[in-house]
């Protein structure tokens, strides 16, 4: 008897999404929805999206969603969680959204230990607006606003959000994962599961950072972008669980 052993998660819409070929964004959405389906949370969860490529989730993710002003998903998610504690609230943000424009909101939500799960996609640039420099852009990396490469004197150094939040007392789960191959995807799914479990247990703020790619703005093929993550991104952004309690 033939049996379906791998299926498209029920939480996704049936149409084609708006992301570029080879982008990890829809893969991350797929992981989150498959975990939600496993926990049977599709009917009682809300995803709060930031601005940028992540807003394409509106035509991809099938659960209730909310689009916020740039950088403010953590603030909006905190409000939803405090008004409706039984709702599972997750935010889905890019690096320009979480680490630059919304840095204050992110830090404050983490410092209050609000019981939300944050999914942070770090692809080292502002993807949707044309590949400008983000706080996470690597040293020497060329973007449309750093045409000679990022240098420390003018632009500072890349920000490591997991390490920054790890200095606070309140967060309960912090991890950095990537999706470059099958073993890493399985580990990433475990991390998403942990983050949702921490929220279900009421432990407080949890964040999973995904080291992601941007083939279009990096000017690489999908295959080359995976190689770039292995060679350049992972030495700067080491993977692992920073906090789990």
């Amino acid at each position: 008897m033939e049996e379906k052993i791998y299926k498209r998660p029920a939480g996704l819409q049936d149409n084609i999404n708006g992301y570029c070929p080879g982008c990890f964004h829809p893969g991350i959405g797929k992981l989150i929805m498959s975990v939600m389906e496993e926990f049977d949370l599709l009917e009682r969860s809300v995803m709060v999206d930031g601005i940028g490529c992540v807003a394409s989730n509106m035509s991809y993710i099938g659960i209730d969603e909310l689009n916020t002003p740039h950088g403010r998903p953590c603030a909006v998610a905190s409000a939803i969680k405090r008004c409706s504690p039984e709702t599972i609230v997750v935010t889905y943000q890019g690096d320009g959204d979480l680490a630059s424009i919304g840095l204050a909101e992110t830090m404050m939500a983490a410092n209050r230990g609000d019981n939300i799960s944050v999914f942070f996609v770090n692809n080292a640039n502002y993807g949707m607006t044309g590949g400008q420099m983000a706080p996470t852009t690597l040293m020497g990396m060329k973007t449309s606003t750093t045409p000679y490469g990022r240098n420390a004197q003018e632009h500072g150094y890349p920000m490591h959000m997991c390490e920054v939040l790890n200095t606070l007392t309140a967060p309960s789960y912090l991890a950095r994962v990537t999706l470059i191959d099958v073993p890493h995807i399985k580990k990433a799914r475990e991390a998403v599961k942990q983050a949702i479990q921490h929220q279900l247990d009421g432990k407080g703020f949890s964040m999973v950072e995904f080291v992601s790619n941007c083939p279009t703005n990096w000017g690489l093929t999908p295959q080359e972008s995976i190689q770039f993550i292995k060679d350049k991104m992972l030495p700067e952004f080491p993977l692992g669980e920073f906090r789990n309690r």
Partner: peptide, 12 residues
């Protein structure tokens, strides 16, 4: 598992 767009389903 690798497909980012969830376009593949597997039967066994």
């Amino acid at each position: 598992i690798m497909c980012p767009d969830a376009a593949i389903e597997v039967y066994k």
